[in-house]
Design a protein around this nucleic acid. Sequence first.
DNA 1: TTAAGTTACGAAAACGATTAAGTAACAAAA
DNA 2: TTTTGTTACTTAATCGTTTTCGTAACTTAA
Lengths: 339, 339
Amino acid sequence: MVSMKDISQKCGVSIATVSKSLNDHSDIGETTKNYIKKTAKEMGYFPNSSARALKTNKTYNIGVLFVDEAQSGLTHAYFSHVLDSFKVTAEKKGYDITFISRNNVHKSMSYLEHSKYRGVDGVVIACVDFHDPEVLELVRSDLPVVTIDYTFNNRIAIVSDNIKGMNDLISFIYEMGHRRIAYIHGADSSVTQNRVGSFYKTLDSLGITVPDEYVKEGIYIDTESSAYLTKELLDLKESPTCIIYPDDFSSIGGINVIKESGLRIPEDISVAGYDGTELSQVLDPKLTTLKQDTKSIGKFAAEKLINLIEKPKIAILERVVVEGEVLRGGSVGKIGNNS
Amino acid sequence: MVSMKDISQKCGVSIATVSKSLNDHSDIGETTKNYIKKTAKEMGYFPNSSARALKTNKTYNIGVLFVDEAQSGLTHAYFSHVLDSFKVTAEKKGYDITFISRNNVHKSMSYLEHSKYRGVDGVVIACVDFHDPEVLELVRSDLPVVTIDYTFNNRIAIVSDNIKGMNDLISFIYEMGHRRIAYIHGADSSVTQNRVGSFYKTLDSLGITVPDEYVKEGIYIDTESSAYLTKELLDLKESPTCIIYPDDFSSIGGINVIKESGLRIPEDISVAGYDGTELSQVLDPKLTTLKQDTKSIGKFAAEKLINLIEKPKIAILERVVVEGEVLRGGSVGKIGNNS
DNA sequence: TTAAGTTACGAAAACGATTAAGTAACAAAA
DNA sequence: TTTTGTTACTTAATCGTTTTCGTAACTTAA
């Protein structure tokens, strides 16, 4: 690789002059500056990021920490969409992204240590177990951090509005005439808590009391549990007219069970998902679901994090709440005037 | 961060001694070595990767280049699985991964330049347009490279065995009694060519002539085109008894059309996908598909690339072909003895 | 006793950049 | 004319490592 030294020799100036020219310092003459820039380009110069990082303590690299219960890693539908948007936004601002993990050969390296080792300028944390001591260590460190879908006291957070999301979803289902609404939710987490809380609150404000049997704990992205729990719901004396699933994918488990028992969707029973993945829109009938705005979430996360990195004084500690949108698929049907 | 300097002061030795101790050089006494290692651990020392990279020209960082037609980025089902496996394997060997892209703020930076700028030790290339001049520049460079699903002359390649895969898939379908088999394939690419080629060859060797109308060019991961083309197939005077789709996801488009036209799967018509994603296994009936061994592909890619990086002399130029497996779902039904 | 060899460490240069401080050369002000 | 101020550079230190080359101190062989 061609270095500043090479350019300085070719141009007959000092290395410092080259550095300052390329970084547009004001104390270099216009002609020299242009000449150097031109030769640099001609010679195919690109800065050595390691050298620059060593000196400036800035890597233009952002760490991504993501671990989920299912170890689905990058294949996680929701996260991969958020990450993709994050990546695109970050790259536009000159940042690359690197994964922070513990698979590392340096077994003893914690997330924080890994981050410091790589010298990332900041870290985005998503979908992990936020009670993990190592995650807490990272959150409490002096590194710029934004969290996704979880809020810490002194950290910027980007959260999907699960409360409004669930409220909107249920309101739509209610408007369609449903009064017996069941909810198979995912494993316990702050996201789940918000959704479940909102589920109860919304129905309560609509004057509906939810039987205990209507709320069941399932597993995210798991069709077996959703299938099993759906059976339980169908076997109830008074079974629900609509079932909400933890997410789009797991709704398929329920849908299959429903069809097997000879029921039709939405004529006999309605179903709804959550996430608004591509999948939900190709099912037949289309799945009614709450589309989380993964694009905005990823974009905001990147913007806020980079802002925090570059202007730590000005950056404000905020909690950005990103609203979703109800996708009114045909899987939730209209029920007669039995208001 | 604590540096070698801090350790050297605490231990009363030179920086060189610290460095050599931590790197297990033979010219340091056992006692000193142990003492230094112990203090290093106590002080929470971790090497500064930038400094090390600057000096050694080794970053323990691998670049990942992935661009697909659909710009689906990380959300690409096949690729995200391959990448996840790649990532896990690489991390186990102490390598982190960084994405190589062109979204970068340094607009003029090519893939190769980006790679050199970041100083990645090697690059894995997948699913991109392998005719892109920039990709070629990278492939022809002096950087260690492995490609996935495409073979260059002087490069290690890991390829999914699309020829055998399609052969196996069709053989199974044939065994189930099908003789009129249609194939909606994806956009042109070497992967597609292999599959289509194998499709024709296999059927030919089974003594079946494929009518031109049975082979249609669709789009990967696209349900609209698969739906549209399925309609065309159903409208034929002599429509196929089985339709193979570009991939699992797009098969849904076809399945919906089939159901809408009142046909049952597999009683009236059979369908098959390709990939073997989770999705294929939760459809009802389960989709018959060819499961590509994404785990092995990612793992091999990482292993071969790291081997090439660490032992460039010994590493052999090979083309690793990874076989898939037919998942015999219920979507392909048995047809009577009309051999 | 002396030469040669071994062991265990240190000094210093180098990787490629950034930047504070210094310095010529020249112009403008007093 | 002298002082002061600009402008346009250069020098040199520095970031945290690695590594080559020395070099004491001690051991062994002659």
